[in-house]
Amino acid sequence: MQTTASNPAASTLQIAFSLNGQAIDIAVDPRERLLDTLRYRLNLPGTKEGCGEGECGACTVTIDDLPANSCLVPTFQVRGCSVRTIESVPKAELGPMLAAGATQCGACTPGVVMTAHWIKQHSQVLESQTLRALMAGNLCRCTGYDGIIDGVRRWIGGPQ
């Protein structure tokens, strides 16, 4: 909510975008964060706020198939884009993450899963980057990261 703290709204913008495959048409304050639109207006609270300044990655979503911190994105900027949130990740795929201990308190977890899911779908990035480097945008304070890294490795399959 920080972006709208300074002054009352001047006007709203009407925008359309795709959210988890569904068409959304919504009026937004130009300073409204995508994170708040998702959580408080579109009833998708699976995306979490950890820091509100793009450091922790708890609010990770994908925009046109690229991971982004939704706390740093004004909602109007996703006009015409395809946005995907944690709610779009199939539950049935997450067994390996659970077994490895990838979640403890769970507050960072949706962001972790979004990044991991993106890596899984773009596994060629592992040819030039380590998994630990690719996951470094998602801060976790509970696991020490081994549970996450092992979980993603098992989920992706194959050695890393």
Partner: peptide
């Protein structure tokens, strides 16, 4: 035994206080 609430955390379904509807 696996963490009981693990899947709801992994799917973002776990509702922390700020996630709950008013």
């Amino acid at each position: 035994m696996q963490r009981l609430e693990g899947l709801s955390k992994l799917t973002g379904a776990e509702r922390y206080l700020d996630d709950e509807p008013l």
